[in-house]
Design a protein around this nucleic acid. Structure first.
Lengths: 96, 96
DNA sequence: GCAGAAGTATGATGGCTGTCAAACTTTGAT
DNA sequence: ATCAAAGTTTGACAGCCATCATACTTCTGC
């Protein structure tokens, strides 16, 4: 039933670029346009990373005009793998 | 100071064989001989996996005669990356 | 309509890594 | 002394994956 596969989620999160995307999403609680992430890869590579994150269930995507918005599926992940995202998304010191 | 690198730890844990090794160690609280793990790879491949786990700081190894024992560095990992091993080592339902 | 902006799709490529077999080392038991 | 057990080392190989450039699609605004 889990719908989410730990192996797939880990393979998604092991890449630094993808983990950075997740971290940036987690830091704002706001959805972020594909082009607005602070990542240093080409557009086509970015598209690939978003696809991997989406396939693993980590993000959800929807269009707004010509832009594509990205939303972190925090609740679903926390239910499927409690503590995982907490362990992987760095927080500023003293915040909990 | 951290001595432990999250990227390296994740790269170690993303492999199913290595994660299985960690899980088996975590399940017993006893050290396990290299040859006594339930893994289905050749001896040389096993050696490789143990090396990766050791380099990442996940396990410690010591010799007993001709055997090599493996010990999970739970405490160190919990301090360096709180919640990570808990999220990745499956427990029988209802155990916490 | 047209130009530009935002992503996607398609190959191609290079590097990394998990895998194994074979040869070797070392330890313990007979 | 010998032999077997337990790991390690080395080298080779195959498959995967992150990356990019290029071409394409689709919206928006003028």
């Amino acid at each position: 039933m889990s719908q989410f596969d730990l192996q797939q989620v880990l393979e998604a999160l092991v890449d630094p670029v993808r983990r950075s995307i997740v971290t940036q999403l987690d830091a704002t609680d706001e959805d972020i346009r594909c082009g607005d992430f602070d990542i240093s890869v080409s557009k086509s590579t970015a598209t690939h990373h978003f696809k991997v994150l989406r396939a693993a269930g980590l993000i959800r995507q929807y269009y707004v005009g010509t832009s594509r918005m990205n939303s972190l599926r925090r609740a679903e992940m926390d239910e499927a793998f409690p503590g995982l995202l907490d362990a992987l998304t760095p927080r500023p010191a003293g915040v909990r």
